[in-house]
Design a protein around this nucleic acid. Structure first.
Lengths: 260, 260
DNA sequence: CTGGGAAAACTGATATGGTAGTTGCCATGG
DNA sequence: CCATGGCAACTACCATATCAGTTTTCCCAG
């Protein structure tokens, strides 16, 4: 049976001095990506609103945004459920990330300026420091910062947003997988090579290094995806658990909204 | 002064049998992309709701989605305005589209199956027919269908969504530009080459052809972008027109929400 | 006629009430 | 014991009311 999940531990309450809307979205997204909310869990507007101490309106708006990100499925007049990890969506996300980060790093190698090169070195040093200190959280943050900075240097800052959206689905597995150490040092080395080639305006080399880097990172996630495949969704899912008794199979559903 | 734009001609009313929410979003998006709403125009929740005969709630939700697409700017406690055509965003969109369509067409050449090849030929024939008949609308539709089908064949159907999002900003200029004929025939020829290479499993060739195709299409838009640059926004914009009388310049604004 | 300031009339943001639709439980009949 | 019909409790969806902040307008003093 489904785990009760009675306690959501949403004690990190909303700061009423700021607009609750964006906060609710960010909070729920984090909980879903970090697998605090398991796939299939129901996210009732009413309950979330009560738990967070806000009205249902901002909660509803947050859920709509999450549905666009593909993190929840909104079934009209039925419920909103945390989306299963869609294997196809994960592969799509990997393709998107690889294509965009390779394209931007190529451009970055052309446009990079000396002070930006220094900045890259600084972020990498920081990441090494976090690795040595065993600060996993900081390591991840530095990793994100480095990749984002490379995109920014390419002059296509807006692309970072799209990459971020794709990364959501990759991060969901990443958090389920947990990070194991052996790959980590490879990551540092690869970052070094990418930055080195960018600094020396070697666009093709930087692109090749980036592609290798992203594929190595994905390799582990891909293995996990197959090992625990049964946990995830491969085709169109009906959101609810498998426990149906006798209702006609919900094949012909109204599908009034265009939820992805 | 700003053009009055008293008549919005939103006579295409909402079908109350379906969920209004998605309809409002689609309707507004179309009007913005097709430049029926000009950049800078104010989209008041109240007025749009009255004009469409629905409540303000679904309108608000639609505006939030449009803001995520970068088509409108929501300024808290002030108003929602059609976003100027951001030159940087257009270049970002072009990079995204090129990177993703090249990556997917490469994959499509590997995976394409005979019946899919036939399908591609059928779509192309249809496009030729529309060109001969001077059916511009149909021509565009077939163009979109062809590109979408290629992405689908690659096995990364979800990527189409991201491409569609990027294409929004390109389409905005496309509609302002209007299509002139000389390029059109090049387009057909390039489509032929892409399909031909995909069918013959020539991934690299298909990718090269796709890149050339997308760049040629963008070339004209790019020229227009520079010719009429003054009409668009290059930096952070304040949304409102220039007609301010005496209020202190809204530089230090609360900016409570994280609108892009 | 000009400048300033207060109030009214907007705006989006949030809260809440009512409605249509779906699901699941439970009594009922085979 | 199992299958079925229906009711009750849920859901998301939309409409409406209220709130807080901004902008505009307009009147009056100088």
């Amino acid at each position: 049976m489904v785990v009760a999940m009675d306690s959501w531990n949403l004690s990190a309450l909303i700061d009423r001095r700021q607009a609750p809307g964006s906060q609710v979205y960010a909070l729920l997204r984090e909980h879903i990506v970090k697998a605090h909310f398991l796939p299939g869990a129901a996210l009732s507007e009413k309950r979330v609103a009560e738990e967070l101490g806000v009205s249902r309106t901002p909660v509803r708006e947050a859920l709509i945004r999450l549905a666009e990100d593909g993190l929840v499925n909104i079934v009209p007049q039925s419920g909103t459920y945390v989306a299963p990890i869609d294997v196809a969506a994960v592969y799509d996300s990997q393709l998107i990330r690889e294509a965009l980060e390779c394209a931007t790093v190529f451009a970055a190698a052309r446009k990079v300026k000396p002070e930006e090169a220094d900045d890259l070195g600084r972020i990498l040093a920081e990441q090494k420091r976090h690795l040595a200190a065993g600060d996993h959280e900081g390591f991840i943050a530095a990793d994100d910062a480095l990749h984002a900075r490379l995109i920014e240097i390419s002059g296509h800052k807006g692309v970072a947003r799209t990459v971020q959206g794709a990364k959501l689905h990759l991060d969901r597995i990443r958090y389920i997988a947990g990070e194991d150490s052996p790959h980590i040092h490879f990551v540092i080395g690869q970052h070094e090579e990418i930055i080195d080639r960018v600094i020396h305006h070697d666009g093709r080399g930087a692109r090749r290094a980036m592609r290798g880097h992203l594929r190595l990172v994905f390799e582990k996630l891909d293995r996990l995806l197959w090992e625990r495949q049964v946990l995830f969704a491969t085709g169109p899912r009906n959101g609810r658990g498998v426990g149906r008794n006798r209702t006609t199979l919900a094949a012909a559903r109204p599908a009034r909204n265009a939820a992805p």
